[in-house]
């Protein structure tokens, strides 16, 4: 399956802003996080197709996954 992976803030350092990734069926968010060399603890916000997701969320074909460190403003 093909997903769009978007990275934000410090996660872009040495990586990318956006990339398409071909992944095996049944891959979850955690596997993508680890494949990027990130740890679970570093993940602040997971968004899957514009909604909050979990590390356990399973990905589907054509999903957009967005990963943010814990950041904020106001």
């Amino acid at each position: 399956m093909l997903i769009t992976l978007k990275l934000f803030a410090t996660f872009r350092n040495g990586r990318f802003k956006v990339a398409e990734q071909e992944l095996p069926e049944g891959t979850d968010v955690r596997a993508v996080v680890l494949s990027l060399g990130l740890t679970e603890e570093e993940i602040g916000i997971v968004m899957l197709n514009g909604r909050h997701g979990e590390l356990d969320s399973k990905l589907s074909d054509h999903d957009t996954l967005s990963l943010f460190p814990l950041v904020g403003g106001g």
């Binding site: 803030a9 602040g44 460190p69 814990l70 950041v71 904020g72 403003g73």
Partner: peptide, 16 residues
């Protein structure tokens, strides 16, 4: 705290 200790000083509130 990652927001007040790192996120806000690096990107400001505009990270939103």
């Amino acid at each position: 705290h990652p927001v007040s200790g790192e996120g806000l000083p690096t990107y400001g509130t505009n990270v939103l």
